[in-house]
Amino acid sequence: MTAVLAWSTFLIAFWTLVPQTISIHRYRHEPEALRGVSMLSLSVIVVDYIGWSAYGILTAAWALWIPSVIGAVLTIVTVVSLLRVRSRRPSGAPGGPSRRGTATPTGEAQTPWEEQP
């Protein structure tokens, strides 16, 4: 019964990642479209899976640590994919995005979250 509960919980948690993973794949060439995917939530999920993996290993509960290790690996792959997409330069933008902001043609400073006229 413990194994069924552990795997069921893993599948529920795993399916929460599916929409974000699909978005990352669908918009892999459009980094701006992925601004809504939270790196913080993915990082918390990775830490959670690692914690449950460690607990399962220390208590010899294979039904707990096996799905947790699988979940950690899949979530890490999702995080790496998101980082790779976000590190790409948008098409048509020389130099790509900048965290410090840019200068407009008039010389005014512009931060990345301000829209250009």
Rank of each mutant, 00 (worst) to 15 (best):
A109G: 09
T9Y: 11
V44K: 09
A54Q: 08
P94I: 03
Y49D: 04
R99W: 07
W15R: 02
A63M: 11
L34I: 08
A60H: 14
S38M: 08
I12F: 15
Y55R: 09
R100H: 09
A6I: 00
V77N: 08
W113Y: 11
T106S: 15
L42F: 05
R100C: 07
A13E: 13
P97Q: 10
S68K: 03
D48V: 08
L74P: 00
G56W: 02
T2F: 12
A60I: 02
G107Q: 03
L64P: 01
M1R: 15
Q116C: 12
S23D: 13
V80R: 12
P31K: 05
T2E: 11
A93Q: 15
A61G: 08
Y49R: 10
L82G: 05
A63H: 15
R88Q: 15
I76M: 13
Q110I: 03
R28W: 04
P31T: 06
T104H: 04
R26T: 12
V85H: 09
A33N: 09
I22S: 07
P19L: 03
P67C: 07
A60E: 08
E30D: 10
S87T: 11
I50R: 02
W113K: 01
T106D: 15
G95P: 01
H25E: 12
V4P: 00
R99V: 13
T9M: 09
V69Q: 07
E32T: 06
I70V: 13
I57E: 00
L64F: 06
I24W: 03
A63V: 01
A13K: 06
L5H: 11
P90V: 08
F14Y: 07
R26Y: 09
Y55E: 06
A103T: 11
Q20F: 02
G95E: 03
W62L: 11
I50M: 13
H29L: 07
V44M: 09
G71T: 00
I76E: 05
V85T: 11
I22N: 10
A109Y: 01
T104N: 12
E114A: 12
G92E: 13
G96K: 04
L17K: 04
A33V: 01
I50A: 12
S68Y: 02
Y27H: 13
V69N: 10
